[in-house]
């Protein structure tokens, strides 16, 4: 804790704080708040994202769990960046940072214009700094590629959806869906081809059962006569004696949908009302 307070470098102070573990201790919280207040950051909120950050903060010290993102411009133009000091005890973060840092970093174009007009005398050659760091006196954090520690490679945190990957997934999904639909059509054709005769046999049996049941259970003669003269009982009689059979319609220009219906065995005409396909869509 005392060593933290003696640190003059904000970055090193932050690193040494994170190496102690998650911000659960009082000392760490205090030092973190101090840094936060200097950078004018909002007060710490105990929300879901922060809890996830704290939960994964130990992984940050054990492996390279952060990723580099593209340079971005910060609003705070006055804050000076200080590179991690070179020493043997430096953290894995500092080593990875130095190793991955691009050798020739071009600041954003607006900064280049600003430097041409204002800091022309202060700029020095980039080749003087082989490790990729600018000199401290004329470098501001606005043109520095920021290493974002809140983007983890772990699956527990939300990632922005990559549109390229998204399109690949969509293409694969469409392909699978098309093949699945094709299989369904083939299966349906096979089933309907083999089971049409079985279906007809079952229909004959059921029609006979219904006629027999109605004959035996009609309450009085009047009801029995009305029932026997109905279209339904007429159809049941025709099915049971085989004068009406099942027929598969392979679709016409008018009715594209395949269907199975009743037809007269002698003439081949459809029995009952003509089948009209209704398109299955939401208006």
């Amino acid at each position: 804790m005392n060593s933290n307070r003696c640190q003059t470098n904000e970055v090193n102070k932050f690193i040494s704080s994170t190496e102690k573990g998650p911000f659960t201790g009082r000392d760490n919280t205090l030092s973190f708040n101090k840094i936060g207040s200097r950078l004018n950051s909002p007060p710490i909120l105990k929300d879901k994202i922060e809890l996830k950050f704290l939960q994964h903060s130990e992984d940050l010290n054990q492996s390279r769990s952060y990723v580099n993102i593209r340079p971005r411009t910060l609003e705070d133009q006055s804050y000076k960046f200080e590179a991690p000091n070179l020493n043997d005890n430096e953290t894995s973060w500092a080593k990875d940072f130095r190793y991955n840092f691009p050798k020739n970093v071009e600041p954003p174009i607006e900064n280049q214009i600003a430097n041409l007009n204002i800091n022309n005398g202060l700029r020095t050659s980039q080749t003087d700094f082989p490790l990729g760091f600018y000199s401290q006196k004329n470098f501001n954090i606005a043109s520095f590629p920021v290493v974002d520690h809140q983007i983890f490679k772990t699956t527990g945190l939300e990632h922005p959806i990559n549109s390229h990957i998204d399109s690949l997934i969509n293409a694969e999904f469409s392909e699978l869906e098309a093949s699945s639909l094709e299989e369904d059509v083939h299966t349906e054709e096979e089933n309907s081809g083999t089971s049409l005769e079985d279906e007809e046999t079952a229909m004959k049996g059921l029609a006979s059962d219904i006629i027999e049941f109605c004959d035996n259970n009609s309450a009085n003669k009047d009801v029995k006569e009305r029932l026997n003269s109905s279209k339904f009982m007429g159809l049941m009689g025709s099915i049971s004696d085989g004068s009406i059979v099942l027929k598969k319609d392979n679709g016409t220009e008018r009715n594209l949908q395949k269907h199975v219906g009743f037809c007269f065995q002698n003439s081949g005409n459809w029995a009952g009302l003509e089948f009209h396909d209704v398109e299955d869509r939401i208006a």
Binding site: A202, M203, L206, I210, N217
Partner: peptide, 16 residues
């Protein structure tokens, strides 16, 4: 188709 007829028959039997 036969399933519909089966359900009609079942309904008749239940109603009786």
């Amino acid at each position: 188709m036969s399933q519909r007829l089966q359900s009609i028959k079942d309904h008749l039997v239940e109603s009786a």
